[in-house]
Every structure is written in structure tokens, then in C-alpha cells.
């Protein structure tokens, strides 16, 4: 058994923290986990992706077509990660747009989501969630990654349960911060089930 997860986003969004939380929940379940954590050149604003591999694995790199789940923190970055997906890969996409400087400096605007998601093979299903709104509802923009993790748990595609993630959150947050993250997790779980898939809408 093996679960390969790609988490993709923009530096500063909490991509690495999301990877740590998924890893921690899996280790709480007693599973073997390997995670890549490459920061590259920039601290904030560049593309960032983290590979989390759970189960019978050696290295941290997920091969092309071998991703079981892509967690996209941002639409353009989600599509970039889809280049490593197969038509069996499940995709969750946060709808929060962060315009790359490469567009703004040439007076261009962010492409609309339909154009972006239309770039991929029609066979791949992309489930969209407005994680920023739900994170703010939970009490903090910074809980955006917990909302998205909640969405993945809601779809039932992680090899561990909600309780394992709550334990992982408890290990990292206390008091009010834990409450915010616990709510964020719930909102994410509910939110993804309420949404139609972006590619079929």
C-alpha cells in the first residue's frame, strides 16, 4: 500500500506546514512516511511543492503519473502539479488566486478558472474549494492549509482518519489556535462535499 500526495502552492501559503501535518497524522497511525522539503531560492512568492509519500516507499520523489492526490493551494500551481498526475489522480484545488508577477508586470490579468482547468485532460476531476473564506470563518487566514486538509479527509482519500489529524493538530497547536484549526478542519470536510467539481460545472 502506498499513497503519494503532491502539495503545490506559493511560498508563504503554508505548503510545507500542510505536508508536516499530513505526515504527522500518518505517523500517528504508525505508517511509514517520507516527505520532501525543498525550499529553493525564494522565501515567499515562488512556486513551492512538497511530496508526501505514505507506506512502502524509499525516496521522497513522486514519479510522473504516480500521484494519488494533488492538493493545490492555488489554481495555477494546481495545474502545474497536474503535469505529474494520471487520470486516476484525485485533485483538490483552493480557489484563492495569487497573481504571478510574470503576469502583472506585462499588464496581464489572472486567467479565469475555466481556462485553467480546461487545459487538462477532461478525464481528470478537479474539486474546488474556497479555503480562504472557510479559514476566515474559522477565525484565521493562516488556517487555510487545515481547511484544505479537511477537504482531503472529507473526500476519503487519505489513509488515516479525522481523529488522527485532530491528534496531529493537538500536537502543534494549543488553546484558541487549536480551536481555530479544529473548526477549519470541519469546514474543509463539509465544504468539499457541498461543492460540485470545478471541471464538471
Amino acid at each position: 500500500m502506498r499513497t503519494n500526495i503532491i502539495i503545490a502552492g506559493v511560498g508563504g501559503q503554508g505548503v510545507v506546514t500542510a505536508g508536516l501535518l499530513l505526515s504527522e497524522a500518518a505517523t500517528i497511525r504508525g505508517m511509514h512516511v517520507v516527505m520532501s522539503e525543498i525550499h529553493g531560492l525564494a522565501q515567499r512568492g515562488g512556486s513551492v511543492s512538497v511530496d508526501v509519500r505514505i507506506g512502502e516507499v524509499y525516496g521522497s520523489i513522486i514519479g510522473n503519473g504516480d500521484a494519488d492526490l494533488i492538493i493545490g493551494f492555488e489554481p495555477i500551481e494546481t495545474m502545474r502539479a497536474i503535469a505529474r498526475a494520471s487520470n486516476k489522480t484525485r485533485v483538490i484545488m483552493n480557489s484563492e488566486k495569487i497573481t504571478p508577477v510574470s503576469l502583472s508586470m506585462h499588464d496581464k490579468e489572472y486567467p479565469n478558472n475555466a481556462i485553467l482547468t480546461g487545459m487538462a485532460d477532461k478525464s481528470i476531476e478537479i474539486r474546488e474549494i474556497n479555503a480562504v473564506a472557510l479559514a476566515k470563518k474559522a477565525g484565521s487566514y493562516k488556517s487555510v492549509n487545515t481547511v484544505i486538509i479537511g477537504a482531503a479527509i472529507g473526500l476519503g482519500i487519505l489513509p488515516f482518519e479525522r481523529e488522527d489529524m485532530l491528534s496531529a493538530l493537538k500536537n502543534r497547536f494549543s488553546g484558541k489556535l487549536y480551536d481555530i484549526n479544529r473548526d477549519a478542519l470541519e469546514y474543509g470536510m463539509e465544504g468539499i462535499l457541498a461543492n460540485q467539481s470545478a471541471s464538471s460545472s
Partner: peptide, 16 residues
């Protein structure tokens, strides 16, 4: 078994 997508057509987001 990769998905067909032209990732080069996506706006780049190099480190800034």
C-alpha cells in the same frame, strides 16, 4: 500514464 497538459503554457512563477 501522465495526464496531457501543456504546463509550459501556464504563467511561470519563478522565485521573486
Amino acid at each position: 500514464v501522465s495526464v496531457e497538459i501543456d504546463a509550459t503554457a501556464l504563467p511561470p512563477r519563478p522565485p521573486v
